[in-house]
């Protein structure tokens, strides 16, 4: 576990905390894309299915996986129940069918192995790389975003961006390679880059 990996994971945890904190204190989910949140739940459930058989291998990984699935489900629960009146589907109009379809095609074409778990894992990696698009699209449509929503997107983007130096470090120290994660992670970081640029110039 290197500094980039741990900082990336912490950044992911912070993003979840920011999002839930924002919703609970403002008692609303204004500015949050429900579609992106559903995509993230699909990402975590399909990727962390291995909890069922690798649970005992790493307490750290298993705990984080449970936190990611649970917090994602809780976010959706809040958006569907407590804060439903503040959600406006009319500005959350990104066509996620293409993201899901494209990720499914890539997963079926290039998995590490043609097993259900590996294909679902690959699907989750590709889907995660584009899951922020409905949120960024919504941000662009509504113009000015709340500071807290902006911090959430930054922390979430920083998580995967920090995995890139982690993969480089692991390649040189332990000959670790994971081309699917690496390519998807680079695509994900590129999608965030415009947002990162605006964030840096603003804060």
């Amino acid at each position: 576990m290197n500094i980039f990996r741990i900082t990336g994971d912490l950044s992911h945890l912070i993003s979840i905390f920011i999002l839930l904190h924002k919703m609970r204190t403002s008692k609303s989910c204004i500015g949050i894309s429900f579609k992106s949140q559903v995509l993230y739940l699909i990402v975590y459930v399909t990727r962390y299915l291995d909890l069922l058989w690798t649970f005992q291998h790493s307490a750290y990984n298993s705990l984080m996986k449970i936190i990611f699935i649970a917090s994602s489900a809780y976010t959706i629960h809040l958006m569907l129940n407590d804060f439903k009146p503040t959600h406006d589907p009319n500005i959350d109009t990104f066509k996620v069918e293409y993201l899901i379809g494209g990720s499914a095609i890539l997963a079926l074409l290039f998995p590490y192995k043609w097993t259900t778990a590996e294909v679902l894992w690959s699907f989750s990696i590709w889907l995660e790389s584009v899951a922020i698009l409905p949120q960024l699209f919504m941000l662009q449509r509504t113009g000015e975003a709340e500071t807290i929503t902006t911090h959430y997107i930054f922390a979430l983007g920083a998580y995967r961006a920090l995995y890139i130096p982690n993969w480089l470090y692991r390649y040189f120290t332990e000959s670790f390679t994971d081309p699917i994660s690496t390519i998807a992670g680079i695509i994900q970081t590129i999608l965030y880059s415009d947002f990162f640029y605006i964030y840096y110039t603003k804060y």
Partner: peptide
């Protein structure tokens, strides 16, 4: 160099 068979990342 083989892709990790065991997923040790998140």
């Amino acid at each position: 160099v083989v892709a990790t068979p065991f997923k040790d990342e998140l």
